[in-house]
């Protein structure tokens, strides 16, 4: 299958008073069209930085990282689901979901039709006229996911989208994400620090080293789809998470040492 995301020898260094501090170094990544790849690493390893670079919110200092455009030039390359509830408090749920379409100049009726369809898929149709302050954290993140999907980008970039939620809400949203992905088969790059989440959601888990982040290991998740929360109870799931943890443990310890 054709590659959709391509990073070669990607590097990012931040200027500081004592010289430049590398955040990401010699990082390679290839994500195929329609693949769900999870990027896992210890905190501070630069996985979010890399995602932000792909999103165009930051720039590389060496190498290259890009999203390959598809056949339709009008389609946006990527959209991000941020960790914080990055939906606009001053827009209703419907207007938030329709935001990308509005920025692209679609008329009100057209964009509301798309937005309402996505609100239906994430179970928020009833809340279309609500403001974010009036809905729960889990619902806010559903709005954020619907906003990205409604814009129909080539690639969906997700930066620990469920990180701020409690464990139970998180499990519900993981199942919803699985279901949505089965429907759309979008190319997804998903940054998380939860190994369980990465193995449950991803076709592949890419592991990064501690600061500065570079490739550590690459696991193919051969769990059959469609997956649900029950998948986490299978022996194969346990084997995979165990293997990922084994590779990650030393990096996490290194990251802790570095922080101390």
């Amino acid at each position: 299958m054709a590659a959709k995301i391509l990073a070669r020898d990607a590097g990012k260094a931040y200027p500081s008073a004592t010289g430049s501090v590398p955040a990401v170094e010699h990082f390679d990544l290839e994500v195929a069209d329609g693949e769900f790849v999870c990027l896992v690493g210890p905190s501070g390893c630069g996985k979010s930085t890399f995602l932000r670079i792909l999103a165009g919110l930051d720039t590389l200092t060496s190498g290259e990282a890009r999203i390959l455009p598809g056949a339709d030039p009008a389609r946006p390359l990527n959209n991000v689901v941020f960790q914080e509830y990055a939906i606009f408090p001053w827009k209703t749920v419907r207007d938030n979901v329709a935001f990308g379409l509005q920025m692209r100049g679609l008329g009100r009726e057209e964009r509301y039709a798309v937005a309402d369809a996505w609100l239906g898929k994430v179970g928020l149709k009833r809340f279309a006229g609500y403001y974010p302050a009036e809905i729960s954290g889990g619902m806010k993140q559903r709005v954020s996911i619907a906003r990205a999907l409604a814009n129909d980008p080539e690639v969906l970039l997700m930066d620990e989208p469920l990180g701020a939620l409690d464990a139970q809400t998180r499990a519900v949203l993981q199942e919803e994400l699985l279901r949505l992905w089965e429907d759309t088969r979008k190319t997804v790059l998903y940054v998380t620090h939860s190994i369980d989440e990465a193995v449950l959601l991803g076709d592949r888990v890419v592991l990064m080293t501690a600061h500065p982040g570079t490739n550590k290991a690459d696991f193919v998740v051969d769990l059959p789809r469609p997956r649900t929360m029950k998948t986490t109870a299978t022996p194969r799931f346990g084997e995979l998470t165990g293997a990922v943890w084994e590779a990650l443990e030393s990096e996490v310890k290194a990251a802790m040492e570095a922080q101390r």
Partner: peptide
């Protein structure tokens, strides 16, 4: 919130749209 400015940019808002839909509100 910086993340709201980033969201605005990521969803393709131009200068005027950033002002009208993100910065002013």
């Amino acid at each position: 919130e910086p993340v709201l400015l980033q969201a605005g940019r990521n969803f393709g808002a131009n200068r005027w749209q950033m002002f009208r839909h993100v910065i002013l509100p």
